[in-house]
């Protein structure tokens, strides 16, 4: 693996993303919504010293949860499958690059623009809050943006898994949208249903919540944003009491890292070793 090649491939991928109208639409709408959230709930920002950044960021968490997984899953799912379907993948591989370089370059080249879109949205929203006299800890806001990057990375990995197993981009998108629904709504719904039906305890609910990368992101963001972890109810309090605040954040970050590394490795190995051929 040559870093040089990975960067060249990533650069091409990034340029293509920047020109992709869906990606531009995504970036613009994410940013606009992020800024709008401030104006929708003016009361929250008008009472300074009482509610500032924490509240705004909490609304942003919701926005991130809807947007970031969707774009990461979809772009990830068409990354390899799209080029395979176009036939450009094989042509690319006839040049002196390895499949590993192609894979890594694509991952990087897609992740970076997504992360920068997130940064743009958070930044614009932050300027809005600051200009209106919002207080709050700026560092926590940045940390939430960084957590969103992690979320993007983990779901992009999942998207790549979809991609390496799909021959057609349209099919891959379908699977990606289903996964998005699963991660954002259906998964949590399942856990809630199970928790009620089987009368699960605090520990089980916590363990189940850890299965979902989006849920993990949300819990981590709430913990990072403020001392408001009690808002997470008995499960949150149990977790913080048992593992300590740093401990819980460490666990959550580890889960997100696992959600990034394992699917990445699966997709990578499948693409570059197990299914070596591109016919």
């Amino acid at each position: 693996m040559e870093i040089r090649n990975i960067l060249i491939l990533a650069g091409k991928e990034t340029r293509e993303s920047l020109k992709n109208r869906w990606f531009v639409l995504y970036t613009v709408s994410f940013s606009v919504l992020a800024v709008l959230i401030l104006s929708i709930a003016p009361g929250r920002n008008e009472i300074t010293g009482i509610s500032g950044y924490g509240r705004t960021a909490a609304s942003l968490i919701n926005l991130v949860l809807l947007f970031v997984p969707l774009i990461a899953l979809i772009t990830g799912s068409i990354s390899i499958s799209g080029e395979r379907e176009n036939g450009t993948l094989q042509y690319l591989l006839s040049h002196p690059v390895t499949k590993a370089e192609v894979f890594a370059g694509k991952f990087l080249g897609i992740l970076v623009p997504i992360c920068f879109s997130i940064s743009l949205g958070f930044g614009l929203a932050g300027i809005g809050v600051a200009l209106r006299g919002g207080s709050g800890d700026a560092a926590e806001f940045v940390l939430t943006a960084l957590l969103s990057w992690l979320l993007a990375a983990s779901l992009l990995s999942v998207g790549f898994v979809v991609s390496v197993f799909s021959r057609r981009a349209s099919k891959a998108i379908g699977v990606a949208v289903f996964l998005w629904l699963l991660i954002i709504v259906l998964g949590d719904l399942g856990i809630m249903g199970t928790a009620v039906a089987m009368d699960l305890g605090i520990k089980q609910v916590f363990a189940l919540a850890l299965l979902n990368p989006a849920e993990v992101f949300k819990i981590a963001s709430v913990l990072v944003l403020s001392p408001r972890f009690e808002i997470l109810g008995p499960v949150g309090v149990y977790a913080v009491r048992t593992f300590g605040r740093e401990g819980v954040i460490f666990i959550l970050l580890s889960v997100m890292a696992v959600w990034t590394v394992i699917p990445f490795a699966c997709a990578f190995l499948t693409f570059s070793i197990w299914r070596r051929e591109e016919s």
Partner: peptide, 16 residues
């Protein structure tokens, strides 16, 4: 009814 589920607050599932 089931306070443990408060962990899902702010998640899209709550809105859904």
């Amino acid at each position: 009814a089931k306070p443990e589920l408060r962990i899902f607050v702010f998640s899209p599932v709550a809105k859904a």
